[in-house]
Every structure is written in structure tokens, then in C-alpha cells.
Simulated scan of single mutants.
Amino acid sequence: MPFAIELNMTYEIGPSRMVMLAIEAARSPGQTVLEEHLSIDDASVERIPGESGVGTRLWAHLSSHELRLRYRAEVEVTETGAALERLSAQPVHTLPAEAFTYLRPSRFCQSDEFVGFAANRFGTLEGGAKIAAIRDWVAHEVRYLPATSDTQTTVLDTFARREGVCRDFAHLVCALSRASGIPARYASVYGLGVNPQDFHAVAEVWLDGDWHLVDATKMCSTAEMVMIGVGRDAFDAPFMETEDEANLLAQTVVVSRTTRNSARG
């Protein structure tokens, strides 16, 4: 299924005039970038690989204090997503390095604090069936409420408050999965069903020797998500980082289904 992505960003940037961005669709298994155009007014841009080699990060050096960015892409998503309940987990000692890293606690996902809870609540289940139960538990127990968390909110806060936004849902799935001995990482994506439309965050778990997307908000299916980047948690995969404070002036994200002909329009 092809998707069109349209992003417009305008921010006031501090004295450094340096911005790191993670906004481009990744060249990764399960999706193909068919067309892409990025424009950043009065800026020089340098690309570096994203975390774990997924996607890219952009260093933009601005000539003024205003970031004005336009990004357009058409992406074919071929990954439809396997039924989680049919997937199995690997013994920890057989995990590859790329997965083993994502078993450990991280800044916003203190998974070691959830080992007892995960064992009591999900301990009778195995592999993908356990992940499906974690996803459904988070979806049922946590209310999606905009503006209920900030960049310092941890999974401990979310577990206590039982409310949050997509990043909080993703953190809780990651923490409970890691606490259950299943590698999980945070994924930044563009999602078709996100309401209101914005950058979206989901979890990605390691089962049957591969990564599988899990959206506990249940806004998007795997076939409706375009990968941007991954990390241990939101600290590793923000869409924008600056040395100074950045003030939002305007931002719109639009994700829609398309065809090759209509996209070239």
C-alpha cells in the first residue's frame, strides 16, 4: 500500500542555529521510499545513520534563527504484520547483539522495576501471545489523553497515572516486554490512523528472529505505519533535537493513502 507523507515545520531556534532531525522515512525492510523531497530554507544539511542503523538523522545548520522545513514522500509499505500469537520468543542466550541491547532498562523505560508485575500478570503466557496480552492490557488500562505527559515523563509515571500519549503507550509496552525477557525498542513512525495527525510512537518487539511493530494505542496496523527510526526509548528517537530551546511556530503532519499517479499529480 502506498502512502503520501506531507510535513511542514516552522520553529524558532536558539543561538546555536543547529538542529538534529529524524523526519525522513527509513530505507528499511518492509517499506520502499518511492519519491522524496526535503527542503530546509537557508540551511546546510549533513546526514548520519540513525540508531541501530535504522533511518537517518539530519544535522541542519541554519543561517537564521528560524527553521522552515517541508518534507514530502511517497512510501510503499509491503509489511502487513504477522499474527503475534503465532510467534515465538528466543532464549536470551541465543539473541543476536542487535536484539540483546533492547532487553536492558533505559532512561524512560525502567523495565527492571516491572519484573514482578510482568511475571504475576503475564507469566502463564509465552512469546507472541505474551506480547499480545501486554499490548491489550496497556490499551485497556491506559487512557489516551493529549497533553498529559511531557519529555520527562517515564514509564513509572505512566504506570501510576494510567494516562498518556503514544510515547507513553510505547514505553509501557517496551518496559513490560523487556521485563518478560523479550527485547523491545521504541519506534518513531508516520501512521495513517493517528488522530490528531502527528509523529507517532509504537513499540517493536523481537520474535521469531525479526522485529515486529506493536501499537498499543490501536490507532494503526503494521500495514499503516511508515518507519522513521528506533531507539531504546524516546530519548534515542526524537524527531527534533536542539542545543537551545526551540519554540514551535507551526507544524502539520499529513499521512494519506495514495497511488503512484495521484502522488505525481
Rank of each mutant, 00 (worst) to 15 (best):
G191F: 05
T80V: 06
E241N: 12
V155N: 07
Y190N: 08
E74F: 08
E36R: 14
D208W: 00
T80E: 11
L34D: 15
R70L: 12
D210G: 09
F108Q: 10
A139Q: 08
L192I: 06
E141L: 03
A26E: 08
Q197R: 11
T56D: 10
A147F: 08
A99C: 02
M240E: 14
S39H: 15
T32P: 00
R178T: 04
E85Y: 02
H65T: 14
T242K: 07
G193T: 12
V226A: 05
Q31G: 11
G30P: 13
V115L: 09
G229W: 07
L62A: 07
L95F: 05
D233Q: 07
I5Q: 03
V202L: 01
A25W: 07
L249M: 12
Y186A: 02
G53V: 01
L87W: 00
E79P: 11
R68G: 11
S88L: 03
T222G: 03
A89V: 04
F114S: 04
A250N: 13
A263D: 08
T153S: 11
E76A: 10
I131S: 00
G181H: 00
Q197A: 11
P29I: 00
V33P: 11
L69T: 15
S188R: 15
G191H: 08
L249I: 15
E74C: 13
A60T: 14
R27N: 14
R121E: 07
A119I: 00
W206I: 01
T124Y: 01
E24F: 05
L34R: 12
G265Q: 10
R178W: 03
A129N: 00
I134F: 01
H93G: 05
A263F: 14
S256H: 15
T124G: 02
A184Q: 04
A234L: 04
D168V: 08
Q90D: 12
S106E: 07
W59A: 07
G193H: 09
T148G: 05
